[in-house]
Simulated assay, not measured.
Amino acid sequence: MASSLLRAGDLDKRIRIERPIAEEGFDDAGSQEWGTVENDVPASVTDILPSRGEKLANGINMATRPARVRMRYRDDVAPNMRFVMGDRVMTIVSGPAELGRRGGLEFMVEDYRPAGNGA
Score class of each variant (00 low, 15 high):
residue 95 G to R: 07
residue 7 R to L: 07
residue 82 R to C: 03
residue 96 P to I: 12
residue 73 Y to A: 08
residue 86 G to H: 06
residue 107 F to D: 00
residue 47 D to N: 10
residue 40 D to A: 11
residue 22 A to R: 12
residue 7 R to M: 05
residue 45 V to P: 04
residue 111 D to R: 15
residue 21 I to T: 11
residue 56 L to E: 08
residue 12 D to T: 13
residue 75 D to K: 02
residue 49 L to I: 03
residue 94 S to H: 10
residue 81 M to C: 06
residue 38 E to I: 00
residue 98 E to F: 04
residue 66 P to E: 07
residue 100 G to W: 07
residue 58 N to W: 15
residue 50 P to V: 04
residue 17 I to D: 07
residue 104 G to T: 05
residue 63 A to K: 11
residue 26 F to N: 04
residue 112 Y to G: 02
residue 70 R to P: 01
residue 45 V to Y: 13
residue 89 V to A: 08
residue 62 M to I: 13
residue 82 R to K: 09
residue 57 A to E: 15
residue 19 R to V: 00
residue 112 Y to H: 14
residue 90 M to V: 00
residue 31 S to R: 15
residue 57 A to I: 15
residue 97 A to M: 14
residue 26 F to C: 02
residue 70 R to Q: 05
residue 34 W to I: 12
residue 18 E to A: 10
residue 107 F to P: 04
residue 40 D to G: 07
residue 81 M to T: 05
residue 93 V to G: 03
residue 81 M to Q: 11
residue 66 P to R: 13
residue 30 G to M: 08
residue 20 P to A: 06
residue 59 G to Y: 07
residue 107 F to V: 03
residue 85 M to W: 09
residue 98 E to R: 14
residue 48 I to G: 01
residue 66 P to K: 13
residue 106 E to I: 03
residue 63 A to Q: 13
residue 76 D to H: 12
residue 58 N to L: 15
residue 32 Q to S: 12
residue 34 W to V: 14
residue 62 M to L: 06
residue 97 A to S: 10
residue 103 G to A: 04
residue 25 G to N: 15
residue 79 P to H: 09
residue 82 R to T: 00
residue 78 A to D: 04
residue 77 V to S: 01
residue 93 V to T: 10
